[in-house]
Amino acid sequence: MILTILHPGEMGVSVAAAAISSGHKVLWVSEGRSETTKKRASFHKLEDIKTLSNIRESDMVFSICPPQSAVKVAKAVAETGFEGLYMDANAGSPEKKHLIHKLLESNNIDFVDGGIIGPPANSEGSTRLYVSGERCDEIKAVFTDGFLSVLSLGDEVGKAASLKIAYGAWTKGASALILTVRAMAKNAGVEEDLLHEWGLSQPDAEAMTLISATLNSPKAWRFVSEMNEISETFALNGVPNVFWDAAAEVYERLKDFKNVPNEKVNIDLVLEKLIEPNEDI
Score class of each variant (00 low, 15 high):
51 T>S: 14
78 A>R: 12
44 H>T: 10
83 E>S: 13
110 D>L: 15
105 E>C: 12
60 M>P: 01
111 F>L: 09
54 N>V: 03
80 T>M: 02
46 L>K: 09
37 T>P: 00
79 E>K: 15
114 G>F: 06
109 I>V: 15
147 F>S: 02
122 N>T: 14
72 K>S: 13
143 F>V: 07
121 A>S: 15
116 I>N: 13
156 E>K: 15
109 I>A: 13
47 E>H: 08
148 L>K: 03
126 S>V: 07
120 P>I: 04
41 A>R: 14
93 S>N: 07
101 H>Q: 12
108 N>T: 12
139 I>G: 00
148 L>C: 02
59 D>C: 00
72 K>W: 04
86 Y>C: 01
76 A>T: 11
80 T>Q: 02
41 A>M: 14
81 G>N: 10
139 I>A: 00
62 F>Q: 06
44 H>Q: 13
127 T>H: 03
119 P>T: 13
39 K>V: 09
156 E>V: 14
99 L>D: 04
73 V>I: 15
105 E>Y: 14
100 I>N: 06
145 D>Q: 14
130 Y>C: 03
81 G>I: 07
107 N>P: 04
68 Q>S: 13
89 A>E: 00
72 K>R: 10
123 S>R: 15
147 F>E: 07
148 L>D: 02
98 H>G: 02
36 T>N: 11
47 E>N: 08
100 I>C: 09
149 S>G: 04
122 N>E: 11
151 L>S: 11
118 G>P: 12
38 K>W: 01
131 V>I: 05
54 N>S: 12
136 C>W: 03
98 H>M: 14
60 M>K: 10
116 I>S: 12
99 L>V: 08
141 A>K: 07
79 E>W: 06
104 L>V: 13
56 R>E: 11
156 E>G: 04
147 F>V: 01
42 S>L: 09
54 N>R: 06
130 Y>N: 02
36 T>Q: 14
99 L>S: 12
98 H>R: 15
137 D>F: 00
62 F>T: 07
82 F>L: 01
42 S>Y: 02
138 E>W: 00
153 L>Y: 03
92 G>P: 00
121 A>N: 09
82 F>D: 02
145 D>M: 09
94 P>A: 14
123 S>N: 12
99 L>C: 07
56 R>Y: 01
91 A>I: 07
121 A>T: 10
156 E>R: 15
115 G>H: 05
102 K>E: 05
100 I>H: 09
109 I>G: 12
64 I>C: 08
117 I>R: 05
65 C>F: 05
96 K>C: 01
131 V>W: 00
156 E>P: 04
122 N>S: 10
137 D>M: 01
37 T>W: 00
110 D>G: 15
104 L>C: 11
130 Y>V: 02
126 S>K: 14
84 G>T: 10
113 D>Q: 03
80 T>P: 02
148 L>T: 01
36 T>L: 10
138 E>V: 00
149 S>A: 11
96 K>V: 08
98 H>L: 15
81 G>V: 10
83 E>C: 07
129 L>N: 11
78 A>I: 13
156 E>Y: 04
42 S>I: 03
54 N>I: 06
119 P>W: 09
152 S>R: 04
155 D>K: 15
43 F>N: 12
54 N>Y: 08
91 A>T: 13
67 P>F: 01
43 F>I: 08
70 A>V: 10
139 I>F: 00
67 P>M: 03
50 K>C: 04
48 D>R: 08
40 R>N: 03
101 H>I: 03
155 D>T: 14
150 V>M: 04
45 K>W: 08
148 L>G: 02
61 V>N: 08
128 R>D: 01
